[in-house]
Design a protein around this nucleic acid. Structure first.
Lengths: 229, 229
DNA sequence: ATTGACAGATTGTATGACAATATGGGAGAA
DNA sequence: TTCTCCCATATTGTCATACAATCTGTCAAT
């Protein structure tokens, strides 16, 4: 490389950023149930920060669609219903096709290699333990190499929102072999540098996932769920 | 309609919401230049609110990608460079195709009628005066009727970000006749209830707009722009 | 002209305060 | 008993203030 990168990242600090990230993780990894009310005072104590800071972080997460806020009732974790899930998966289908296509077209050979390695790792029992994290690694490489950061941001947002449907990931466990086969086909198309095929396979992959989610919703129908007081 | 809507919207209040909206409009409609530094104290005075509230609003807009924040240097209006513009238009192309396709498939006859009316209005000299608002009306109907709110949210975000490139809209003025012709073709396809065609035409329309923007960027090349101190 | 240090300005975070609104519970009526 | 109304309490919405951390521009010294 011609010039060395001497940049020192200062963004590691910024307490607010840390708070936002922590809260986001807490929501995504299930520390709070969807629909659960978030009480400011409690969160302040748990995080050891002031209300000022907490409320700024909440605003950020609200803009990301992870929490909703009813005036004078307080924020609560967003709830994804069947309709919204359908819509999200439809959009994901378009965007992941775009990402896959872009990756096959623009990624460096090294990125393609790393994608293949990541896929191999997904086959190991080690990955099966925490599939969520492992699969996120795969997507991270895909989004990094697709040559379009914007699509990455959008997909990350959408992904976070579907992650709120955590019961879904359980259903995915049984589908793991198929999932891996589909991902394998995608990587094959990428290695062959066939953008059109890669994009189509990505779209199909998301479509399959959407079916599973839809089925899950059909089962989990709760005719008259009582809000716990 | 079977049931009357007695809902009284309380969201009209919420000072924070108003502040956020005002700031967003101010940024989008050009009260601030892209890249301009936003000084908290000044904004507080101009808006007549406390720093607490202002900073919450800024967090929200930051999450929307309209402002960026460098720690201890303060927030500033986001700047879109050529690369990012390309990426945004690429994503828009996919999503507007999705919206157009969905509209042709799912919109009510009344919504189709309103879309046609809006297009007719766009031909009047009255609309030419403030094309920005008029065109937003067209998109609002499209997004409302496409049966997918999520794609609406995503496109709104993207649209806001390209609006930061206001010089672009000037370039569009000369392209107005073509624009109207393209929109006309889209509405035709929708009235014919041909989702596949409508989607393709939407994608083409965005692609054309992207070309214009790209050309504009090529002209506006500023080899060594000095940051004004 | 360059370096260095200092003063002022701005942001980052915390605290306390008070008004507005929501919530739960009890007193009283049917 | 059950329902209704009202109130005490809790929580949110917003503000003012304070202080530490950091940036920025200036001015002196070399």
């Amino acid at each position: 490389m011609s010039t060395m990168d001497l940049h020192i990242p200062r963004e590691v600090s910024s307490l607010r950023q840390q708070v936002t990230d922590r809260l986001r993780d807490a929501i995504l990894y299930g520390a709070f149930e969807p629909g659960q009310k978030l009480v400011e005072r409690e969160l302040c104590e748990q995080l050891g920060i002031s209300r000022t800071l907490l409320r700024e972080a909440l605003q950020h997460l609200q803009a990301e669609g992870l929490i909703v806020n009813v005036p004078h009732k307080g924020p609560s974790v967003a709830v994804i219903d069947a309709q919204e899930a359908r819509e999200i998966y439809q959009v994901r289908q378009s965007l992941e096709a775009l990402a896959g296509e872009g990756f096959a077209r623009n990624a460096t050979d090294d990125q393609v290699r790393r994608l293949r390695l990541c896929l191999n790792y997904l086959h190991t029992p080690d990955a099966a333990a925490n599939m969520l994290v492992a699969k996120n690694g795969f997507y991270a490489i895909l989004l990094e190499g697709c040559g379009n950061n914007v699509v990455g941001q959008m997909l990350t947002q959408l992904n976070n929102r579907v992650t709120l449907l955590r019961r879904v990931s359980l259903a995915k466990q049984g589908r793991l072999p198929e999932t891996l086969k589909e991902l394998g086909a995608i990587v094959d198309a990428i290695e062959a540098r066939d953008p059109e095929l890669a994009g189509r396979l990505c779209a199909q992959h998301v479509a399959k996932a959407a079916e599973v989610v839809a089925g899950q919703f059909a089962n989990t129908t709760e005719p008259n769920r009582k809000p716990e007081k």
